[in-house]
Design a protein around this nucleic acid. Structure first.
Lengths: 147, 147
DNA sequence: GGAATTCTCCCCACTTTTCCCCACTTAGTC
DNA sequence: GACTAAGTGGGGAAAAGTGGGGAGAATTCC
């Protein structure tokens, strides 16, 4: 499993391309073949899954019971936004317009490593997000991992 | 498990590099391969985990369910600050800018051994921290380890 | 159906940063 | 007091990030 971490603010050029940090590229499994699936993330960001990780997610969605209205809806919502992109010779990907609109990404993007995925944020949105979630780490850690 | 101890005030050069004290380097497990993961510590310092220790932490985060809002936030908060660095030929690491900004580290750094991790402090911040936490060791020991 | 436009992708070029290596200074040891 | 190891500083090659040109495919418009 890929383990992404770290943060970086990169620019998005006029063609809608942005580089994936070298540190994260080197964390990629060779199975990913330089291909990612981008999709709508929670909290107005873009999730970037390496191909191999995405396969696992896809599997999970495939196993949901499609007779369940909520499951059906969830799968639609996730898949309709999913888009496959590949690294170019310079280690960049190009952001699909629908997704960068959703995330409000202009000419700057904040790239965050979050375990099995990379997240792309509008830097200002992220700052706001941080202000709205000020729970300190100790409390959170206790809530989530405690016991 | 590595057991770091001791303290030292070292300089940070113009390129943002700082040496890891030889005493601590020799306490490293060979499994760490001279690689560390730096991350945001409590009380405005930087935590430095040898790679082998970090792997254990990472494993825990990887098992969290990212469909849970709090878990998602926790993973972001921790991993976005995590950065992997390696010792150079002279036994130094280079401090990522985001972290040295957070810790307010300029051209001097206080290096403290703290069991399984090393901590990096702005020397003045640490002095202030000491003044603000004047409970004497006996009282503390009783509070924490008593009974 | 054909022409024009747009879009995508690949390649090249430039700038900045990072990393590796060499060298000097200081401290500690025999 | 010389030798060895530890800490500090800097030069230069290599890699990473950024921007843009141009060929070819796809789309649109007439």
């Amino acid at each position: 499993m890929a383990r992404f971490k770290g943060q970086a603010e990169y620019s998005v050029d006029a063609k809608g391309r942005t580089a994936i940090p070298a540190k994260m590229r080197s964390a990629l499994s060779p199975d990913a073949l330089g291909t990612f699936t981008l999709t709508k993330g929670f909290e107005q960001c873009i999730y970037v899954y390496p191909m191999d990780e995405w396969k696992i997610k896809e599997e999970e969605y495939g196993n949901l019971n499609t007779n369940n209205r909520d499951a059906r809806h969830l799968v639609r919502m996730i898949l309709m936004w999913a888009e496959e992109v590949s690294l170019d010779g310079q280690g960049r990907i190009s952001l699909p317009k629908a997704l960068s609109d959703y995330a409000g990404i202009g000419d700057k993007v904040l790239i965050i490593g979050a375990m099995d995925r990379i997240e792309l944020w509008n830097p200002e949105h992220f700052a706001t997000y941080l202000l709205e979630h000020t729970d300190d780490q100790e409390t959170l850690a206790e809530k989530v991992m405690g016991s």
